[in-house]
């Protein structure tokens, strides 16, 4: 992926989150205070507005900017989580104008480790990490980078769906106890939107290459 394609992935998240705004809010009404879709749409739209004006070709700087703007726009708990992800991912792709498959694997590994460091959750806690950690597991395997990146998308979806059968132990939803059963976690859902949207852009960049 070149910087232009990387940037259009980051900018594209705004529309994705707007389209899913009401759905994410609905999920959050069962488990939280019902604003997750608003938060994600607002945060990514601010990222879009800033990145569109940037002439930057350093993928690291674009990622860093996305993380900072997102954090500054939303605060909340999702702000620090994703800011930590983007800042730690950005370090791996510093000064790169083009991201090879290996770079992308490194980026997402560092990204997910950044989110986990900040959030301190594990698989099964019914959080955004139920989507991210299966991706990390796949990326750590010794397989061809392209295969890993693509496989991870399916695992992410399974991880997201598995949150329906989990009892929340983190954040506001943890107060629900068993009442959180049966509902898909909104954070895990928006995490899957992010990664699956990356995969769409990633595949497009491959087609362009060929």
């Amino acid at each position: 992926m070149n910087a232009k394609e990387w940037k259009s992935f980051l900018i594209g998240l705004s529309d994705i989150m707007k389209e899913n705004r009401d759905y994410l809010c609905e999920l959050d009404r069962y488990l939280g205070d019902g604003d997750h879709g608003v938060t994600m749409a607002e945060g990514w739209t601010a990222v879009k507005e800033h990145l569109e004006e940037m002439e930057e070709t350093d993928c690291g700087k674009l990622s860093m900017k996305a993380g900072k703007i997102f954090l500054d726009t939303v605060g909340s708990s999702v702000g620090p989580l994703y800011a930590s992800g983007f800042l730690s991912g950005a370090r791996c792709i510093k000064e790169k104008e083009k991201l090879q498959n290996e770079d992308l694997v490194e980026f997402w590994e560092a990204f997910i480790e950044g989110v986990q460091d900040r959030g301190q959750a594990e698989i099964g806690d019914k959080t955004t990490l139920d989507t991210w950690l299966p991706i990390l597991g796949e990326l750590k395997k010794s397989k061809a980078p392209e295969t890993k990146l693509l496989n991870a998308n399916e695992l992410a979806e399974q991880g997201m769906q598995a949150t329906k059968d989990m009892v929340a132990v983190k954040g506001r939803a943890s107060r629900l106890g068993d009442r959180s059963l049966g509902y898909q976690d909104p954070g895990a859902t928006s995490a899957h939107l992010i990664y699956s949207s990356f995969i769409v852009h990633y595949k497009n960049s491959k087609i362009v290459q060929q």
Partner: peptide
């Protein structure tokens, strides 16, 4: 001052 029911960011 944060958004509604959401913590303000660090800045």
């Amino acid at each position: 001052v944060g958004n509604i029911f959401a913590s303000p960011p660090p800045t």
